[in-house]
């Protein structure tokens, strides 16, 4: 019977160049990292790219990871920073080069187009309702700033504690609490007919 290796065991092995150990870490956390990045970017290809870049960057620095924090909070920090960078680059891009149309309405339309492609096996009425709801949720997230997005996603999707979020975001616990409060209020207001 094999005993599951801890993250720290794997980190040490990966630090010594063991690619299989690193692969195990990637497989352990890729879905969670992808979920957070997806929540921030709402673009599958971009989310995949940022997730890949996150793990490449993690491997490059893993030899210096001292284990004074969880591996996953460390990886989240890389991912969140890369996602924020990506978002800023997108925002800076001239509109002519971008797929964005104008303001948030364009984004919402994109989201509606994307998630309107439903599984035909289900009830079409329910499927449409669901897709509309998801579009509204994504549009509501989109209205948050990158920092507010990151905090709410780390809390609500990943269940990170305030302390862990403060390490990921490099801010105080008080800042985490106030961002969380603001983000929740805003989401509640935007989604009030569904909650």
């Amino acid at each position: 019977m094999s005993v599951e290796r801890t993250d720290w065991d794997l980190v040490r092995l990966a630090g010594g160049g063991d690619k299989e150990a690193f692969r195990e870490l990637v497989e352990r956390y890729q879905r969670r990292v992808l979920a957070v990045v997806m929540g921030m970017l709402h673009d599958r290809e971009a989310a995949l790219e940022v997730t890949q870049e996150t793990f490449i960057k993690a491997f490059r620095s893993i030899g210096r990871f001292k284990g004074d924090a969880s591996f996953y909070t460390w990886v989240y920090r890389i991912a969140v920073n890369l996602a924020i960078d990506h978002q800023r680059r997108e925002w800076r891009r001239p509109l002519a080069d971008s797929t964005r149309t104008s303001g948030n309405d364009g984004q919402t339309e994109d989201l509606l187009d994307r998630i309107g492609d439903e599984d035909p096996r289900g009830d079409p009425f329910e499927a449409t309702k669901d897709s509309e709801l998801r579009a509204r949720v994504l549009a509501a997230i989109d209205e948050l700033t990158p920092d507010h997005k990151a905090v709410i996603l780390l809390r609500e999707l990943e269940g990170l504690s305030y302390e862990e979020i403060s390490r990921v975001m490099q801010c105080s616990k008080g800042t985490v609490m106030s961002r969380l409060h603001y983000a929740r209020k805003k989401l509640q207001a935007r989604l009030k007919e569904f909650v």
Binding site: A35, G39, L133, L157
Partner: peptide, 9 residues
């Protein structure tokens, strides 16, 4: 939030 993001990925 969870349902929406899970669906997306």
């Amino acid at each position: 939030l969870s349902r929406t993001i899970e669906h997306e990925i």
